[in-house]
Simulated assay, not measured.
Amino acid sequence: MDEALRQSLLTTYRDGLLKDVLPFWTRHSIDREHGGFITSLDRDGSIVDTDKGVWQQGRFTWLLGELFNRVEQRPEWLELAQHGLAFLEQHCCDPADGRMWFHLTREGKPLRKRRYAFSESFAAIACGELAKATGNQEYADRAKLLFDRFVNHVVEPKLTEVRPTRGIGVPMITINTGQELRESIDLPGANAWIDRSIEAIEAFHVHDDCHCVMETVGLDGQRLDHFDGRTLNPGHAIEGAWFIMWEGHQRGDAQLVSLGTKMLDYMWPRGWDEQYGGILYFVDIDGKPVQEYWHDMKFWWPQNETIIATLLAYRLTGDLRYAQWHQMVHDWAYTHFPDPESGEWFGYLHRDGRVSSTLKGGLWKGPFHLPRMQLMCWQIMADSQFPIHEYILP
């Protein structure tokens, strides 16, 4: 990766974030009447649905606080972050049990809750960034409370007691939430939660015998020869891979970097579409048909997470495979997803790269995976202190 390419990528990620993606959301999603953010937007930013997803309230609030803390202390970013957190605090918690809702009306009236507690994890990191930005201890205390509710909630789905399972989602989000809160509020016990979660992923989900990172396994990590057990989510596993690589980088721990790159090594060939390019959504470990009918679509976020993972792996190890993979996924994603007319990215493509839906956001897509990717990759390329090729892996 020569200097010209490094500068080109740095500019693509930085300007894409600050001049395209962030302005799209600050122009179109801010609800000045009822608070929070409306994220169900069409191609041009027009509103498709006024309901609000709690995930996106927390995620956008986190992003704005993160930009204020890491990029520049722009007053408008802090004001919008406080705007988002006010809606979270006023409307997003169920007073009956303290749990957070998943789906609200525009005014903040509750519609439904999910079995898992990811709303709490995203709200926690939002509070953490506001605590760091303002020095307000109440925000830090709220972040700790939400983190405790997240990690102590029983969120693992079970197919009755006949076939109990464990999924990779909970430990991997615990890793990232712990990392964010360690950085923003020096969360007590963060390293212990991160260690426990990495150990669970390595022990139960990383299967060396078949070179695979399993999404859903039995309680002891055993493979389950059913739809749920055979279905892999390559983008999810690759996201977890870079969380672990990043932890290795933060600690100077080559073993963690090695674990993260191994997970990437296992899931790249399973996720990369050799026919059309891009990362597939779901695949079956044995090559059997997948039950989810959107399995071969190209969603935005697996491409985002793979761009981060491959760039981080290359910058940490110097292995040219990762530079090549990064170029492949970067080039495919940037050829097909960006909307040159209205800005931001389309979220949902057909397998061959044709646009399936003009939606720019909804309950699931909002200002998170894409701007986080742009921020992470910009910072990796710009940081003169970043350890280039420091880890020699077996």
Rank of each mutant, 00 (worst) to 15 (best):
M1K: 13
D2Y: 09
L10R: 14
L10P: 13
L17D: 03
D20S: 08
E33R: 15
T39S: 11
D44I: 05
Q57N: 14
F60T: 04
L64A: 05
E66F: 09
E66R: 10
L67S: 09
L67G: 07
N69V: 10
E76L: 10
W77S: 03
Q82Y: 02
H83W: 00
G84T: 00
F87D: 05
Q90H: 08
L104D: 08
R114Q: 11
K132S: 14
K132Y: 15
A133L: 08
R149C: 02
E156R: 10
K158D: 08
T160E: 15
R166Y: 05
G167F: 02
T174L: 01
I175A: 12
I175T: 07
E180R: 15
L181E: 08
R182C: 05
R182Q: 12
G189V: 02
A190C: 02
N191Q: 12
N191S: 11
I194C: 02
M214I: 03
L219I: 07
L224E: 06
D225H: 09
E239A: 05
I244Q: 05
M263Y: 08
D265Q: 08
Y266T: 06
P269M: 13
R270M: 06
I279E: 09
D286V: 00
V290F: 05
Q291D: 15
Y293H: 14
H295A: 13
M297N: 14
Q303N: 05
L312E: 08
L312R: 04
Y314E: 04
R321A: 15
A323W: 10
W325A: 12
W325K: 06
H326N: 10
Q327E: 11
Q327M: 03
H330V: 03
A333C: 12
Y334H: 12
W345R: 03
G347E: 15
D352V: 01
D352G: 13
K365I: 06
P367W: 00
P367F: 00
L375I: 12
Q379W: 10
M381H: 11
D383T: 13
F386C: 06
P394M: 01
